Simulated assay, not measured.
Amino acid sequence: MSTPSTSEAELVRSEEAVPRRSHLDRNPWWGDLIIHVVLVVLGLVTVLPMVNILARSLSTSASIAGNPLMLWPTSLTMEAYLYIFETPVLMRSFGITVFVTVVGTALNLFFTTTAAYGLSKTYIPGYRFLMWLVIVPMLFGAGLIPTYLLLKGLGLINSIWVLIIVGLVSPFNLILMRNFFWSLPAEIEESARIDGASDLQVLWHIVLPLSKPVIATIGLFYAVAHWNDFFTGLFFLTDSSKWPLQVVMRSIIIDQSMLGMGGGNAPNQDLQKIVVSADNIRAATIIFSIVPVLLAYPFLQRYFVKGIILGAVKG
């Protein structure tokens, strides 16, 4: 009788060491059924309101009055969207929001990246004090009135730049990116410094190319925050000509003052009095405001989970 070789014996021991999953560890069929039913219900609760809004934006006012809970557009019309594109107030606010999102996200990433890279070096003098300067504002806020007085002293009230300067660096995003930089092997940077690279060269040529997942994740956080920012424009911008899209949407949805926004430039005004109503324009404005985020998210989704996991490895 031949004895098994060493490799075969090790393979047998490794297989025996792996715990086998018995039928007792699996969910019963009714448990899986309950889980799937709950997930389907939650999915419908999330999706159906958006489907209703989309259907209302593509239907006539008479169809909406007859069936407000529609899930499919009836009497299909694009007049609400044509009205939006011909309305100066909405298009100006859309341009302001795009400018704030693009420029603000770029500045956010620049300052967050440079600060996070510096804080990832625990040997710098005053490291603990600097970390407390980041953590304390994340836990405690100064309040609305001190913030208003500060921005007024800086001359940012009624300036578009207040939408960018406020929240220029998020402490949560800073710590997340700092943890990612901290998790990178130190040997990579040491080898570059031996070759004569400076700190900026190491950051630009080595650290940033390895940090695409976390940069995409933090960039998505900042971009969505800028796009959906409502309170900053509401509190610090009294000039309605500088309002971002979300503040204008609030005026449309709550104040219901939208049919006069187009002025004399609104197309087919006689037809719109019949076809387009406040419900049409409210629904079309909501869809109009979320489409850019929906278009950008699929391209960044593959970085999203990876960036969060890698940024939370250390800390």
Rank of each mutant, 00 (worst) to 15 (best):
P4Q: 11
S5L: 02
P19L: 07
L24T: 07
N27Y: 05
H36K: 13
V47Y: 08
L48I: 13
N52H: 12
I53F: 05
L58R: 10
L71Y: 05
W72L: 14
P73D: 04
S75G: 11
A80D: 03
A80V: 01
L82H: 11
M91L: 09
F110C: 09
T112R: 12
T112V: 15
T112W: 04
L119P: 09
S120L: 14
Y127W: 15
Y127D: 13
M131W: 13
V136A: 11
M138S: 09
L144H: 09
T147Q: 10
G153C: 00
L154E: 08
L156S: 04
S159A: 09
L168M: 14
N179K: 10
A186N: 10
E189R: 05
I194L: 13
D195L: 08
S198I: 12
L210G: 15
L210Q: 14
I215Q: 05
V224T: 04
A225R: 03
F231A: 08
L234A: 04
L234C: 03
L237G: 00
I252Y: 00
Q269W: 04
Q272A: 09
V275Q: 03
S277K: 00
N280R: 01
I281L: 15
A283G: 00
A284L: 06
A284K: 00
V291Y: 12
F304N: 02
F304Q: 07
A312T: 15
